[in-house]
Simulated assay, not measured.
Amino acid sequence: MQFHLFDASTHTADLAAQALGVTPGQIAKTLVFLADGKPLLVVTCGDRRVDTKKLVKVFGVKKLKFADAQTVFSLTGFPPGGVSPIGSLQPLPVYVDQSLYQYDIVYAAAGTANSALPISPNRLLQITEGCLIDVC
């Protein structure tokens, strides 16, 4: 597997898929949420939406919201659209949605809005020490 760096922006799943020649589902988007104020990462297919009601149940929290751009950057060191599930400034819990397992290889942002890292869902779960969930 080889890290990919593009001249064009890949900050959305559709743009990344177009640059890589894959479907948007193969793009592993990493979202930053605040669950009762505590940050966490959710990695899912680029063509899926997180069901926040399911996510609230999984975490047993009362309040869940997307982190704003400034919070994303301060927690991860990555800009929105380039958030990598690996290598955040602060150690953050990672939750990998089972939807990624329909693909042998997915492409995660690698810290910029024009980079991608090909990885298998199993390897992603392993190196992030993540937890497998079903929230899409």
Rank of each mutant, 00 (worst) to 15 (best):
V42S: 03
T52D: 02
L15Q: 14
P79C: 14
A108K: 05
Q102G: 15
Q18T: 05
P24Y: 10
L132S: 11
K54M: 07
P80M: 11
V42R: 02
K65V: 07
P79S: 14
T12R: 00
D68N: 15
L41N: 02
F33L: 00
L64K: 01
I119C: 13
Q90T: 06
A17R: 15
I105W: 05
V135I: 15
A69G: 03
I127L: 14
D14M: 12
S99V: 01
I133C: 08
L41A: 01
K54C: 08
G130N: 09
A109Y: 05
S88C: 15
Q102V: 15
A116P: 04
S84Y: 06
S99R: 08
A69D: 03
Q126C: 08
Y107C: 01
E129C: 13
A16L: 12
T30C: 12
K53E: 13
G87C: 12
L55M: 07
L100N: 01
S115C: 12
L55A: 04
A109P: 10
F59K: 13
S74V: 04
P91L: 08
T44Q: 00
A28S: 07
C136L: 11
G82W: 09
D51Q: 13
V32H: 00
Q2W: 09
T44S: 12
F73D: 00
L55E: 00
T12Q: 04
T10A: 14
D14R: 15
T23G: 14
D68F: 10
A8D: 07
V32E: 03
S84I: 10
T12C: 12
K38H: 12
L100Y: 03
A69E: 01
G60H: 05
L5I: 09
T44K: 06
P121F: 03
L117T: 02
V32C: 14
T112C: 03
T30K: 02
T30Q: 00
L117V: 04
K62Q: 11
L124P: 03
S120V: 00
V22I: 12
P121M: 04
L117C: 07
I86Y: 09
F3G: 05
N114V: 08
Q102C: 13
H4L: 02
S99W: 01
M1Y: 11
I119V: 15
Y95W: 07
N114A: 09
G37K: 09
L31A: 11
K63Q: 11
T128P: 12
C131Q: 15
I133E: 01
A28H: 08
L92E: 02
Q98H: 09
L117H: 02
A17L: 13
